[in-house]
Design a binder for these strands. Sequence first.
RNA 1: GGUAUCAUGGCCGAGCGGUUAGGCACCGGUCUGCAAAACCGAUUACAGCGGUUCGAGUCCGCUUGAUACCUCCA
Length: 489
Amino acid sequence: MEHKLFLYNTLSRTKELFVPIHPNHVGMYVCGPTVYGDAHLGHSRPAITFDLLFRYLQHLGYKVRYVRNITDVGHLENDADEGEDKIAKKARLEELEPMEVVQYFSDRYHASMDLLNVKKPSIEPRASGHMIEQINMVKEILDAGFAYESNGSVYFDVEKYNKSNHYGILSGRVLEDLLSNTRDLEGQDEKRNSFDFALWKKAQPEHIMRWPSPWSDGFPGWHLECSAMSERYLGEQFDIHGGGMDLMFPHHESEIAQSTVCNHKAPARYWMHNNMITINGQKMGKSLGNFITLDEFFSGNHKALEKAYSPMTIRFFILMAHYRSPLDFSNDALQAAEKGMTRLFKALETLEKLVPGDTSTVNVQEVETNCYLAMDDDLNSPIVIANLFEAVRIINSVFDKKESLTAQDIEMLKNILHTFIFDILGLLPEAASSAGNETIEGLMQLILDIRASARASKDWATSDKIRDDLAKVKITVKDTKEGASWSID
RNA sequence: GGUAUCAUGGCCGAGCGGUUAGGCACCGGUCUGCAAAACCGAUUACAGCGGUUCGAGUCCGCUUGAUACCUCCA
């Protein structure tokens, strides 16, 4: 099957046919988390979005090198903490080594990503492990005359850069507009212009994380690590650079400027940005303090949550919206996703039980074609899911003898669904909720046996009492053709 | 103020000029001792006002409203 994969490129604000620089190979860089806190729902969106792209590119046969960094140095606090490295700040409060904090939250981030069935990137570099590359890059930019040293810190000269290039090419900004936005911040006087950004920051005495450099003991600027690490692992120019929309400016804009000065070409050809997850219409974010961590979703342990939501529910919820649309969190939406996904997986079980017919009354091939068309159209996962539900309808109708499929078509349908549900969307069937505890299993078996004999003798009073009383302790009993089943709510 | 994005039925969410999105809820039906679950089926929409067009959620303009970025943020 011919594939013309179109991806929305923020640079051109249009969907463009994806053509890799080197045939059959794709280099992809995505901005990862800053590890000084637990991952929240918002963090799962880029992870899942670019996991979807990673999976799909691999499915199409590309050899993909996917680099997703971990930021463990370099970001500055604002306001009272201006100039202080975020990680150092947190570490001091906790009286832990900064690297201990980094390790702790990295591990927790990885655990959450594993639960969400997010594939590990090919390389996951840390900023702290690439000091030499970053310092070299600062030197290069200084040598090229696009940076200046000031009091031990080094700043990128945006105004000079903008004379030969367009600073704002990605975000659609015009430098003159940025000029009007002067704001008093500490350290501003070191800069020639407010929009200049730091390449190297001199460390204040209280800084724990610091590295020697030709200019001062300090740490690299906010945007440098991505430029340095993407170049190191993917080369001067690579295919795809991704991240959250909130990083478009100034982070990605500055990355482009830095790399362009060093390599005389734009670092990435396709820039992709996922939209935000909102809560009550507002962006979920650390600064706003309105975030819910992934662990809280998984445990249900948060006042805004009516119940616990499994990792796969979260994944399905995110895939039900297109990655460039804002997605509003709500219990209703999450529960709708949960029910829909359950129905999808139930149909997968039903599919195994279908009895083949002599002819097919529905076109199975169409499901596959439509799913591929949706994926090729800028990763339109909601449309893929809609088509999967069309398959659900087909499966159930065949099961109900309202439609018919040949053995060959049933096999094809299995292949299609497995490919899209497991391989591409990366969904996994949830583990049976009732399993695990032998004592409870045994007790429930006993209770249901007693109820079964009551029902056999049409003793509905006893049968209903057992069911009602179990319901009071949040155990649901369902009578099916194969006997009673139970689950804990 | 500047830049960008968006406004779809009870809720969530597709749609990129011309025949059904889809999910959840609700309603009707099948099944069941009853119920739940499951399954089948039907219904409800395109912020407002103009314009372009044979034809507009879909393009253009204006109005209103919302969000993001401009300061660390996925």
